[in-house]
Structure formats: C-alpha cells, structure tokens
Write a protein that binds this DNA or RNA. Structure first.
Lengths: 271, 271
DNA sequence: CCTTTGATAAATCATACAAATAAAATCAAG
DNA sequence: CTTGATTTTATTTGTATGATTTATCAAAGG
C-alpha cells in the first residue's frame, strides 16, 4: 500500500464510477480478496488482480463514464483508488492499451482512445460489455455482422475443409441430429453443439482471418444470445442444408443456405 | 539488470531465435538504445522497451519458433536473455496475453496458446507478421476476407450513413477524382485517399463490429499491399460506382458494385 | 489411494531511479 | 516594455530490483 498523503482533488468521474461499482471507502484489495471466491465462478475473469482492474476500467470506458479523448487519473491516484500497487495497475493499463482502449505517454498521462480504434472484435472486450449496452441493439448489430461473415465462411469451408475437418463437422452434425430427434430439446446441449458447428466452419475456411470469429461467436452466444426451444427445432433443417452443402463442396449452395439461415433467425436476448 | 548467476541450460529454441534476430551476446538494452532513433521512424513501435520485447516474442510465436502449446522460458530466464527487468517483461507478456498469444499460470509457466485463439484481427498483430508469412498467400487470404466484409459494409453505409459522413465521403471522393484526372498519378496520395475512402465506409455502417476494419485495412495497405499506377486508374470508376450507390442510399447496388470491385482487383505485393 | 508437504513459478507489492515533456521561468533581442 | 526563443523545473510515465504472497505440481508419507 502506498504511503503518500492522499490528494483530495481527483477525477470526479472515476470517483463516482468507483463508488458506483466497487464502493470507494473500503480498500479494494480487502474487498476483492473477500469477493474473489464468489466471483471466480461467475465469469472466471477475476482470477488475477490486474485483470479485475482492467475490467473495471474498461467498463468505465465502454459505458462512457470515462470520456473518449479524456485523460484518466494518474497512476498514483488510480493505485490509491483501487488499493493496488503500480505494477498491477500498469499491467492492467497495458492490457487495455493492447485492445486499443488506452494510450499513455510520459508527462501527458494515459488517454482514452477514440472509439474508432477500439478493438471490438476482441472476445474479452465483448464480454466486458455485458450490461452496458442495449442488448437488443447490440445483438442486432452482431446479426448484421454475421450476415457478412458467415455466408462467405461457409462457402470457403465447402471449398477448403480438410478431410479431418469434414469428419469433425460430420460428427458434430450427428450429435445435433440426435439432440433434435429427442422428445424434449436439451437447450444447454444444443447451444453447445451449435457453437461447435459454427466454430468448425470458421476453422475450415483455410483463411486465418476467419479464425477469431469462432471465439467471438462463442462469447456472444454465451453472454448475450438466448435460445427458445422452438427456435432450436426450426433451425435444425437450416443447419442440415448448410452441412450438406459444405460436405459435397458446393460453395455457392453453402453461401446461399447460410444466408437464408441468417435471414430467418431473430436472436433472442438473454434475460 | 539481474545479478543472478547465468543458468547454462535454457530453451534452445528461443536462444537460436534470439541470436537470429537480435544477437545474443551484446546486452539488448544497449543495443536497443543504440537503434532506438533509427527504428523510431520506421513503425513507431519501438518507443517503449516492453513493446519492443513484445514484438520480438510475438514474432517468435508467429513464425513458429516458439511452438503452439509449448512453455516459454521462465520470466527470470527471459529477463536475462533480453537484458531487461521483470517489470518490462511482464508488461510485454500481458500485452501478448491480451492478444491471445500467451497465457500464464503460477507454477506452470507461460504457455503459447493454440493458433485458434490468436486475435488475427488485431492491427498490431498483423503488423508483426511482416516478413514472416508468404505475403502473396497472406494478401490473398485478406482479399478473401474483404470479399465478405466490404460488400455488406457498403450496403449498410448506403443505408445508415449520417449527413456528416456522406459529406465527408463526398469530399474524399472529390480528392480522389482530382488525383485521377491529374496527368501523372501520385501513388502516395492515392493510397492515402483510397484508405480514407474505405475507412469512412466502415465508420458509416452504424455497426460497431465493422469499426475495427478501418484500422485493419489501413495496416494491410501500409505494410503489405502495393499499387501500380495502371491499377489506380482502372480502380477509379469502380470507386465512383460504389460512391454513387452509397450517396443515393441504394444498398443493393452498393453491395453489388463493391463485390465487383473486389472481384476485379488483384492485390499487388510489396517489394 | 488420499493427504500432506515442499519446491517452484508466477502474482503482487514497495521503492528507487531514469526518461520524456508540458509548463513555467528565464533570457535575449527588438 | 514586449515578444519570442531558450532553459529550467516539475510531473508523469517508464524501467529496475528485491521482498513477499499465492497457486499449483510433484513427491513423500500415511
């Protein structure tokens, strides 16, 4: 713990933010250690101190409480407020710098970068948005994005998937088929296998730029998108069409079926 | 500088890597400070020590010298090899962890994550690939990726661009037109304005998920893709068609013209 | 087979010093 | 006295280092 005298004047923004999310009076270290276990299970994101702090700062940025272009409080001030060492804080800042949220220079301080430069395609960043945006709008934007990516990915997969990948896709589809024919839909299992289905397609494109979308899709499904049982049922046929097109290597058909699939679905929102 | 005695046995992989890229004998700190100025101008990436180290480690991973799933040498060993403090090394590792390249746990060490989880859509990561991949293949993959993203982005921009964004696009197109009608094509200026043209389109989609592609495209153009003068000429008409479609809000036409543009181009490779 | 214990590597803390630079203070020329 | 250039100073991030804590594997012991 730092021993310098407390400066009374500091960013009112972050203070209000802190009191909102953590409570500014109790030293965060104690509070954190107290909560560590209960939080661990929720998202697995609080294992390390710097990650916890990074998340808090990121959410302050994403929510707009720390305005774009503004200078956040200096390292010393933040260390006090979070009750952590400079090492931990700096690692948190480095993490956010890497994602395009912050940028720091000597004497100037650490600045919140313009939204234009935020790396929205980072799964961790997407996770951190939970509860900060209008989920409905967010999911619709994501859908508008999937409509660009997935049809092309399916077309490429139909063309480039290796034998092993086709086998894997086949076995996943098999499980999908079993789940679908069961008397009652096991939603948990369906979500899991649905994610796997789409992941394999991205990995089968033979194009490195499509790889990250497997994780992005997974994050979105696990944090923002919910299923209804009817939907799972109706979706199966569409998945079958995509599957068949990829397996026979018909890229045009794969693109078409995927496009139709994405036109028909309407993401259900969590909670 | 660490004062512990040098352990003779360490990862031969990283050693060979080091001797290859930096030279293992001279302390890196000195060497780095010597090179700092000359490097600064090249990419601006060497300003800080941890960033420099992060880049080196990242390139060792991207090139495959540090195998996926393998454990990299411990902090102490790496500190010695790079001649830096643990602080700097840890910040470098945090940076790479944030990009999905590394993951570290107590007692285990720091592991290279599977390629599946690498964040290929991070501009910095793309920058670091310079010289490590077959550029031709890399650019073709990128083209296969643009073919998915850009037509949709153009369609969305036609639909959602604000008045200010349309004005901005218009002014950029104006400059494009001037450059095109000049007796001799100013390639530098054309690249610059071409990048701006596409950036504005991404920013005009009204969809946050498209925002990162502005920077990705910029990075690719600046580091991997070269222009020939004839190409700039033939491209102008295609840009005009896209521009007009967006300005009149015809999303279908915007999608089509963009698609045609991407079908016709054949990325020229740098050098 | 299960539990305990020890060794090890990362995680965090605390402190010191270096480097960069914005802003203030100083100096020089008109 | 004013103005512009220059130097100095103060502040903030950057780097280094050693101590301490925590998590986890692995081996010893019940």
């Amino acid at each position: 713990m730092l021993k310098i005298s407390v400066k009374v004047q500091f960013s009112s923004i972050l203070v209000s933010y802190l009191s909102c999310y953590i409570g500014a009076i109790i030293p965060i270290t104690a509070l954190y250690k107290q909560m560590a276990n209960s939080f661990n299970s929720i998202s697995g994101a609080k294992r390390s101190l710097h990650l916890h702090v990074a998340r808090e700062i990121a959410r302050a940025i994403l929510s707009g409480e720390l305005a774009q272009g503004s200078i956040i409080p200096s390292e010393m001030v933040l260390c006090e407020q979070f009750g952590i060492s400079r090492t931990a804080l700096r690692e948190a800042v480095k993490l956010l710098t890497s994602k395009g949220l912050l940028q720091s220079r000597p004497k100037i301080g650490t600045r919140v970068v313009e939204k234009i430069n935020w790396n929205f395609l980072d799964p961790q960043l997407i996770e951190w948005m939970e509860g900060l945006t209008d989920i409905n709008d967010f999911c619709n934007q994501f859908l508008g994005f999937r409509r660009a990516i997935e049809p092309e990915a399916c077309a490429l997969a139909a063309q480039n998937a290796t034998v092993e990948q086709r086998k894997e896709l086949s076995s996943v589809f098999q499980k999908m088929s079993e789940l679908n024919s069961a008397p009652e839909l096991d939603i948990e299992a369906w979500i899991d296998i649905d994610i796997q289905f789409h992941r394999i397609i991205f990995f089968s494109t033979g194009n490195d730029f499509y790889l990250p979308f497997g994780n992005i899709l997974t994050t979105m499904f696990e944090h923002f998108i919910a299923y209804s049982s009817e939907e799972g049922g109706t979706c199966f046929n569409e998945h079958r069409l995509i599957y068949e097109a990829i397996m026979i290597g018909d890229s045009t058909k794969a693109r078409e079926t995927s496009r139709e699939h994405l036109q028909s679905i309407n993401h259900r929102i969590k909670e």
